[in-house]
Design a protein around this nucleic acid. Structure first.
Lengths: 168, 168
DNA sequence: GCTGAAATCACACATTA
DNA sequence: TAATGTGTGATTTCAGC
């Protein structure tokens, strides 16, 4: 099979896994209508192709906050002063290296970057801002919002689902 | 133990799991310096407390794009017309129900919501916009950016790591 | 798709603080 | 008393056929 071709089974597996990767292989196989061995082979192929990057546990921030004190999620738009490709890459390197930067998007139009930060508290945000959002890092303008409530967080790519209508 | 108290072992387990949940329990136990049985018991407790919400596979969008055609990630700021609590809740319900809405944050100051959308293409974005970003949904203003590059995506909460210095 | 070897998990019990 | 660690049987996973 072509190394970059995904058939319907691959899509079913990916869709199942990106919503719930804790299920045992035989259950996954059952849901996708193939034998456990086939499911396993396909999943391993998807992993070796790098399409399945890794498997993580999602924590519920609200519950964590109960035990640790409230964390803080910030959404930040960054506009750079000089916007050549090398300047964009330079800022990106700085941003990506910061542990509190959860997500980093290079965007257009509008600002140059949008970051999602997860910090423990406001002092931690300030510390990052002073490190990253400065003239020194070539930053011209910053617009930051703080999350009052994370109503949805579902790190799943939308996939075509040719089987959806048929199975319904 | 207090049902909401997290000791250092819990934090180590959570930190390990939210970066890599694919490892076998005995390896996890080893990394955290406890017996497999203890690690398993703790993990199950964290799950039953709802702190570990679920386990998912993260897919690499670039690799997917090779096989499926390029997906589109949009970051959208929404300001509502009427901003009472019931109006905010109403829009939130609509947004969360949409499959292409990956993330939904209620924010302050600035706009009322920030959404992260993952759609297959521009027509799909348009379809959503016409459904969700309308007067009918009480939306006054929309500012949308499109992601040119997702440089980082790491859905992990920052945790205090009292062991980090000690182990270094 | 099936089967045997290997690994994993669940549970009972001894141990420690 | 409450949490940890060890050991054994049952289940599941994995690789070769």
């Amino acid at each position: 099979m072509n190394e970059n071709f995904l058939d319907e089974l691959d899509l079913r597996l990916l869709d199942a896994l990106q919503h719930d990767a804790s299920q045992a292989n035989h259950r996954l196989a059952e849901r996708c209508g193939v034998s456990p061995a086939t499911a396993l082979r396909r999943v391993r192929r998807l992993q070796s192709l790098g399409i399945v990057e890794r498997q993580v546990a999602l924590l519920q921030p609200d519950k964590l906050a109960l035990a640790l004190g409230h964390g803080l999620t910030a959404l930040v738009e960054i506009s750079l002063d000089q916007q050549g490709d090398e300047h964009l890459a330079a800022f990106e390197r700085l941003a990506v290296a910061e542990a509190v930067v959860q997500q980093c998007y290079r965007v257009s139009p509008g600002p140059d970057f949008v970051l999602v930060l997860a910090v423990t508290d406001m002092p931690a945000y300030l510390a990052l801002a002073q490190r990253l959002f400065t003239q020194h890092a070539n930053v011209r303008n910053v617009r930051a919002f703080f999350s009052v409530k994370r109503a949805k967080f579902l790190p799943a790519q939308p996939l075509p689902r040719p089987w959806a209508e048929r199975d319904a």
